[in-house]
Nucleic acid binder design. Structure first.
Lengths: 345, 345
DNA sequence: CTGAAAGCGCTTACAG
DNA sequence: CTGAAAGCGCTTACAG
């Protein structure tokens, strides 16, 4: 606040620098740098004097300045859809652990499923010169990232592919998982199966729909237009979709949900329905085994998704120059009861 | 890689700087700075030339350098227990939104409930010169933060209080919540009520235990030693604790769980138990309403916790100099069935 | 073993 | 309206 001091005594709110430490210890700046970085070539006696000055002044190296000089910031950015979504928790944590093992900090942000916000966040991270970027994309055109990637920002896309650029990608097997989920319902006698998914601009929504369609086609089953509903995962929207599919003279006898948000609402509606309806959901959810019936799901391994992406990122930062890769992490069907209900009619 | 170029042409992996832009546009450095920062006092014509150079070179300002000169980094750190724990998701997101509104980025990290890791992370964030810090402490002695706070790092503790220093704090009403939860069970006829909580070194665990003890005392009820079990939230530990309380000639007829991790396991054990046992858990959990019986809980408002802490942090950064405050966010009892079961004996 | 000088990429404080 | 110089707090590359 008071900006009068010239720098003799460190004031409140001002931190001591290596220069201050050097002055107090009566040594050169470079010697302080050597001690702080544990570099060799300092007399034990000199080192002690510097250490004392460091402690007396409460010096802590300014890593921002260090980083400016060294070129690398030892930080990576992770842009996901929503920090509050439990699906991303384990992914986030897995990325953090890998970053930590590499001595890097993690800057986090939510795109809120908004392509503009995604871009704004990503570019802010680039301006901070993060060494690398892990992105769960909201948008479909990532050409805005090309100059950054060219400039050396390692980038890995997770959960959904990049749009219009070639980049390392780690995905869950959305297609295969949805196909096996729908096939599971078909195997239990269902012919009229509904699909409720996320918005059609989201890659995983489309892939899962494709898996469902494929399973139906393989069983020689037609899909009625009313059986497919894509849109936001807002509870009201999902509630209406489920209700509509269960109404009318030829209601569906089974429902496949495209993700965890949809599952939560769908299960809620089905619990209140007067007739049992078979159900399989994409993504495992907590306590799914305790519901009655237990919820059969296609489980993704979010932690593996995150770990794989982060490891790929750091291998790039360590110099890997091979072509962009695409890793697909398998999903797993967990039968718990709801998916094994047979059609009542 | 090839380090031969002198800087005429930007090479791969090297970013253009304002100096490069200035050279290309044929203007001074400061003029580029003016254009980039939209400062007044630049001819439209000059501005256009600079903009063209910026685009041709793919220039993006290095905010790390900017920040070094300006003093503030426009970033804050959030240290919590585990990024994967769904309880912290909404808190994390709330902090992010406030930070975003203030133009700051969020650096995230997990302490993994390890005081050393907490300190290591916090000090790494200080070395990066984050403007402020929001900490869910794992340790009990935060005097290591004193020099940092004195140097100007705004710090707010959430969910648990700081140890041995005076700082802004935002807490849930653990004591009051637990007291009302236990009182709820007592009001439904229970006399033998078990408490299963987190490790005793965690503040909220102790406060909730205190709430339970107070409710029991207020009802004139004794607490048998076997009715209280504190420890890790690992499923095996909790499972054993629940099982032990339900065994013997005088089993408990109700259980109060100290947090969401305990609740998840306890509910699982109770579902398999041969006799109904009343249950109330601290923290709401997803789908709690769909279980049979629905799970009665003391719900915390994690988003409010995060938002309040972040707002306090930024008010400090905006210059608030009043004494450290302590905000307590109320909890809410949500009755869903499990807490309203009456003792069978 | 030690340190003065230059530089990382910006902004600040001035001078024209 | 425009720009040269100094400086943010470090590290690098040298020289002694």
């Amino acid at each position: 606040m008071a900006d009068t001091a010239r720098r003799p005594e460190p004031r409140y709110g001002t931190r001591p620098t290596m220069k201050d430490v050097a002055a107090r210890a009566g040594v050169g700046l470079k010697t302080v740098s050597r001690v702080v970085n544990a570099e060799p070539g300092v007399t034990p006696d000199t080192e002690r004097r510097v250490q004392e000055a460091i402690e007396a002044l409460g010096f802590r190296r300014n890593d921002s300045a260090r980083v400016l000089r060294k070129g690398r910031t030892a930080s990576i950015g992770l842009v996901l859809e929503d920090l509050a979504d439990p699906f991303y928790g384990p992914l986030n944590r897995a990325v953090e652990e890998v970053a930590r093992a590499h001595g890097a900090l993690l800057i986090n942000g939510s795109s809120a499923e908004d392509p503009d916000r995604e871009q704004e966040l990503v570019l802010a991270l680039c301006a901070r010169r993060v060494d690398g970027l892990i992105v769960i994309p909201a948008g479909h055109d990532h050409r805005y990232l090309e100059p950054e990637i060219k400039a050396g920002v390692a980038t890995v896309f997770v959960d959904r592919p990049a749009g219009r650029i070639d980049a390392d990608t780690v995905l869950s097997d959305s297609f295969g998982g949805a196909r096996s989920g729908a096939a599971h319902l078909i195997a239990h006698g269902h012919r009229r199966i509904g699909f409720i998914g996320d918005q059609p601009r989201i890659h995983t929504a489309i892939e899962r729909l494709r898996g469902y369609r494929t399973a139906m086609a393989e069983a020689g089953l037609e899909i009625h237009d009313d059986w497919v509903s894509l849109g936001t995962t807002a509870p009201e929207r999902v509630r209406e979709a489920v209700t509509a599919m269960l109404a009318g003279p030829e209601p569906v006898t089974a429902i496949f949900a495209g993700n965890n948000r949809v599952t939560v609402t769908a299960v809620r509606v089905l619990a209140a329905h007067h007739r049992p309806v078979a159900f399989v959901g994409f993504d495992d959810i907590e306590l799914a085994d305790l519901l009655d019936p237990g919820v059969t799901v296609i489980a993704q391994d979010a932690a593996t998704l995150g770990r794989t992406a982060a490891e790929r990122l750091f291998s790039r930062l360590d110099g890997a120059v091979d072509a962009p890769s695409r890793v697909v992490v398998p999903t797993r069907l967990i039968a718990r009861g709801s998916g094994e209900i047979r059609p009542s009619a």
